[in-house]
Design a protein around this nucleic acid. Sequence first.
DNA 1: GTTTGTGCAAACAATTTGCAAAGAT
DNA 2: ATCTTTGCAAATTGTTTGCACAAAC
Lengths: 151, 151
Amino acid sequence: MLPNDTSVFLAHLKNQKLRKTRVRLRIFSTLLSSTHALTIQEIVQFIPEVHFVSIYRSVEALQKAEIIKQVPQGFTNRFELSDLFRPHHHHATCEICGKTQEVDDAKIETLLQQLSVEAGLSPTKHHIELYGVCASCQISEPLLTSQNLID
Amino acid sequence: MLPNDTSVFLAHLKNQKLRKTRVRLRIFSTLLSSTHALTIQEIVQFIPEVHFVSIYRSVEALQKAEIIKQVPQGFTNRFELSDLFRPHHHHATCEICGKTQEVDDAKIETLLQQLSVEAGLSPTKHHIELYGVCASCQISEPLLTSQNLID
DNA sequence: GTTTGTGCAAACAATTTGCAAAGAT
DNA sequence: ATCTTTGCAAATTGTTTGCACAAAC
């Protein structure tokens, strides 16, 4: 029986001596079913039956347990499931409609490793974000200038 | 007479119909003399004679005028002079001591352009941040310095 | 039964807004 | 003289803390 996401999640909770609670299950399933990383306020809104303070505290606990991770996106901090559940990737975002997609490319990874080494660092991690205008927004380009909504 | 940074600054103010004020000059010179991007609180502390609300407002004005720009660094937002004053670059940061250096590489720029196009976006901009451990921190591990900027 | 997690109130921190006075052109 | 910017007080927003009760083990 190969472990699905939920059993990996439960195993990690146990492993970290964290209890299996309603709140943590809800946060996990919310992130699992989301196509993109969520801000803490978005998580709060998705789970209206739970007090926001509990969300803050559970998010912190899950983060320490490396079940979820915080990712900076523009000037916003978002949360998504950790690499345990989703392979390493980066994000490409349309500046007009805000739609985000995942990007993964081996070349960029090795190039970044090299750059780190050239800078005298033993590489640990990196962040990349790409921004542009997607095909459909190029056609029906609204009046937004360079200075827009996305942060 | 070739324009130095300050005259470019003054020209841009005029150009944007912004007045030349003590506060804006102080913010500009603070960023000009800083080796790395500063948080708004750091700017506030560097300029104690100016009320923090005025710093917030001037920073916003200078940003709209594209004299300074906001850069996300880890989970912190920082400000630095715009590309008018400093060429396009990215940052490589040591996770132990927080020391930051600038990185510029043509290969990465073209590769990111390509990746954007592959993702169906007409590229506009990108963010990259590299993290690692620098040589001296590898030798003498911890001992976190005052400059631990990383989140 | 013991320990951990949750909900609520209240504290704290960061940023924004309204308005009158000071400063720039 | 006019219009912009600044300083201050206060409002607003986002996040954290203390503590009593509830839930998990």
